[in-house]
Design a protein around this nucleic acid. Sequence first.
DNA 1: GCAAAAGTGTTCGGCGTACACCCATGC
DNA 2: GCATGGGTGTACGCCGAACACTTTTGC
Lengths: 224, 224
Amino acid sequence: MTTETRSGAVNQALGTRRPTVAVLVVIFTVYEGALQVLLIERSAAPAEGQWAIPGGALHHGETLEQAAVRKLAEETGVTDVFLEQLYTFGDLDPDAPDGSVGVTWFALVDPERVRLADRSAWRPQWWRLDATPPLAFDNQRVLDEARQRLINKLEYTTAAYSLLPPRFTMRELQEVYEAIRGRPLDKRNFRRWMLKRDFITATNEQRKEGRHRPAGLYRFAERS
Amino acid sequence: MTTETRSGAVNQALGTRRPTVAVLVVIFTVYEGALQVLLIERSAAPAEGQWAIPGGALHHGETLEQAAVRKLAEETGVTDVFLEQLYTFGDLDPDAPDGSVGVTWFALVDPERVRLADRSAWRPQWWRLDATPPLAFDNQRVLDEARQRLINKLEYTTAAYSLLPPRFTMRELQEVYEAIRGRPLDKRNFRRWMLKRDFITATNEQRKEGRHRPAGLYRFAERS
DNA sequence: GCAAAAGTGTTCGGCGTACACCCATGC
DNA sequence: GCATGGGTGTACGCCGAACACTTTTGC
């Protein structure tokens, strides 16, 4: 740390804060044609009964990213997915006595791989992002930030790899983009755009389903 | 905060960390045709004698942004400029006993407005970003992140307002962009690009200097 | 009139966007 | 043979990039 005063003793003398540090993970998926977010129903004060973004305090010896990975795994069982830091809020919980710092992250998961934590209290549940319940604290602001960052990310990275199985059809991929951008896209233009970016590569596999022409399968290229 | 366990007592029971939280501000300016960054020579352990990004612990009752604004003002005397959160690092100071969390910010300042803090110890100094001294801790990583974010920001926001006086010529603006992108730009294309974006507005003032045609003066439009 | 910097226009290629028909398969 | 979704091509407008000359001023 590049603080100019850093020992605990000096910090106390100068009236510095030692707030709690928590990590929050906004977990997105695309399911049934809609962008969904995982929320948890709070079973204790403060804000009991309200819904909130999953999160918790840092464990001892853990880095921020490790805490985010852990939290994501606790709620969904999923690891090794897109997970990126979003923003750090200094005032998400106005009641914390020494203040609280919330380091928010966002993650993208394939709904097929998720096994939600099965708890009676603090139960997690998917919500369509366009129909979320009232949220605890200032969590709505975090969701808004996350949604915008997600939209941007999909424009110039392969982040969508994390929302789909290893092999997928062009239509499945398009549906992911449509759900996130929130509007229909032209099939031909989408295909051209996607292939030009080298985000994905055609395999020579196909998938037959139903009485129509089989669809070519693609996979994501190296992650950018 | 949306932590599921949050009282200090519970946190301790679960072995959670209560690390120090510091704010670091990467302060950029463009001066003598080069992008420069403000660094501070550390006058005490750890990393005594090395250069570092200015920063310090949160004061009591202060938000993260207030701490960043304060730190910026302490070093440069400047307020009301572009200042944006960059990234939060959990491991910038490996020696901190309970860990340390560093919330980094970056700021853009007009060199004409800056009055550097005049201290004998922890003295601040401008460094060309392409010729910085060896930095304490992992500060070089922070600078690299900041530089990339700065380049991106200038593409789609009016952030450059904060690097220039209220009225400026098209050439002065172009020199700022050239310094940051690190390559010369075409005068005609730059002008067209800039005006199309409605980042700036022509005034009907001019500036005469030297034996040549006077330059039109521009001002920034509303900040985006 | 000349030195110095300010200011301007055109061409070309690529890309985003709009839009409609043929193809392969199962039944 | 027909219903179903898969897969493709073209035209147009905008924008980024490359590139050179005229204008205004001071001396």
